[in-house]
Amino acid sequence: MSTATPDTSVIFTWTWTTYSQLIMALIGVVGNGLVIAVYNQKRQSKSATNELLVALAVADLMTSILIIPVPGLKNVPSDWRGQIYCKVVTSAVFMWTSITVSVFTLTAVSIERYLAILKPSTYPLVFSKGSRSKIAMMYIWIVGAVLNSYSFFIWKSVDGTCEIVWLTPWIPELVGVASFLLKYLIPVVIMLVTQIAITVTIYLERQKLLQRGVSKGNPAFSSLEVKAKVVAMLRVVVIMFILCWSADQICFLGFLVGLVPLRIFFGTCLRYFSQLAFLNSIINPFIYAFTNPNFRNGLRQLLLCSTAKDSFKTTSAADIDKTTSLAISMESRNLSDEMTAGGNKQEGIRPSDTPLVRI
């Protein structure tokens, strides 16, 4: 009597989703790599804002690498190797961790700009040039890993395939609601509230200066315009994040609470909405290039291997604060201090034919 050896050969099928993910991955790796290089080529221009933008690019770079399609096992072993394969590879836990970090980092950028413009006295207590931004990013990565760690407990190798096994029926609903709130809704609310508050504040300050007859060449007005440009760039980044991720997050929540059928989730959600969500990891470099002249100059310098020392200067919180201080001094002499610096289901789910599993 002979014992059959399990077939552990790999399977890989080229579909439009695999082509799409591969193209987006390549663009994301190049684009986010250039962002990291541009923002790091001038050490003296580093600030909390720039460090957070670099951290955002790092998270998006990792996401771009991790969405590269890889072959799957035709028959998953039932031993420890198969368990690790299901918990790490099939669950895509590292990819979803980097995506969560990207969301939280973008939220941190919005908070940083809010404090710098609306709460300048509080800003130094939260953000400063140096280690605080790095410490914040360390905590963001830890929290991102913890929030996605449940994948290690629900994915198992069963009868030659990777399946999701919930311990009790109410856990999927808990995971769905918690994931939706912590990874999407709360960050989106924070981004929108801070962006609206910043936009309104800058608009009111601009109107105040115009009513007092301050020329647009005045340092106070120039400082305000610098702030407005940075905020406008971040506003586009936030809007694109919401457009790319909303459908995927809502569908994921609906699936775990039982409102979205299995057929729709592994069809529409994974094949269409996930592709739209992955687009967010490659789009930020294009936003920077179209909305930030300083970034374009730095990119041109980097690509042309220029050695000019002053051809690129990123807009940073420190730069804004220096310009604002000069503006306050001049305005206090001319306007008597009228302007101040502003400031899946239950057991048995077998998604082996899906483009990328989302649990």
Rank of each mutant, 00 (worst) to 15 (best):
T107L: 11
L182F: 03
M137I: 13
V214R: 01
C162N: 04
S246A: 09
K208R: 05
T354N: 08
S102A: 15
V126R: 00
N280F: 13
F290S: 13
V237E: 08
I84M: 13
I11F: 08
P6R: 00
Y85F: 13
Q195G: 11
Q249M: 13
G31W: 00
S133T: 15
I283A: 06
A55Q: 06
K134Q: 03
Y184L: 06
K183R: 11
K229G: 12
G160M: 04
K183Y: 02
G160V: 08
P261G: 01
T8E: 15
A116G: 08
R263Y: 09
V126A: 04
V177S: 03
S98I: 01
W166H: 11
V70M: 09
N344D: 11
L276P: 12
V214C: 08
L259T: 08
R300V: 14
V54G: 06
T307E: 13
V35R: 00
S157L: 02
S121M: 07
F127S: 07
I117D: 06
N292W: 02
P219A: 05
L53R: 03
T324R: 06
V10I: 11
P172L: 00
I36M: 09
L61S: 11
I117R: 01
I111C: 12
S149A: 13
V126Q: 02
F273K: 00
S98D: 10
W16V: 14
S121E: 14
K156N: 14
F12A: 03
T105M: 04
C162F: 04
A145T: 13
N292Q: 10
Y184N: 06
S329D: 14
E163N: 08
K129A: 08
P120N: 00
A247M: 11
V54I: 14
L174Q: 05
D337C: 12
I68G: 03
V231H: 04
F153C: 06
V93N: 03
M95Y: 14
A308E: 15
G254Q: 04
T168W: 08
S274F: 10
L234V: 15
A247N: 10
T268R: 02
S332A: 13
I242L: 09
I65A: 10
A4W: 03
K309Y: 05
A55D: 07
V38S: 07
D321Q: 12
S281N: 10
E163W: 00
L53T: 10
T340K: 08
V30H: 02
G72F: 07
N148A: 01
W141Q: 05
L192V: 15
T3R: 05
F153G: 02
T314A: 15
Y114H: 07
R300L: 09
F252T: 15
I198Y: 01
I154L: 08
E338F: 05
G217V: 08
A317F: 06
L253N: 06
F153V: 10
V177N: 04
L262T: 15
C251M: 14
S281I: 06
A197Q: 09
Y123R: 04
G217F: 04
P355D: 03
E225M: 14
F295C: 04
V89T: 12
V158M: 01
L326G: 09
F12N: 02
K227Y: 04
G298S: 01
I68S: 04
V58P: 12
L243Q: 02
K229V: 14
G298H: 02
P71I: 01
V175R: 03
L303N: 03
S102I: 07
W80T: 15
R300A: 11
L147T: 15
M1R: 08
F312P: 14
F278I: 09
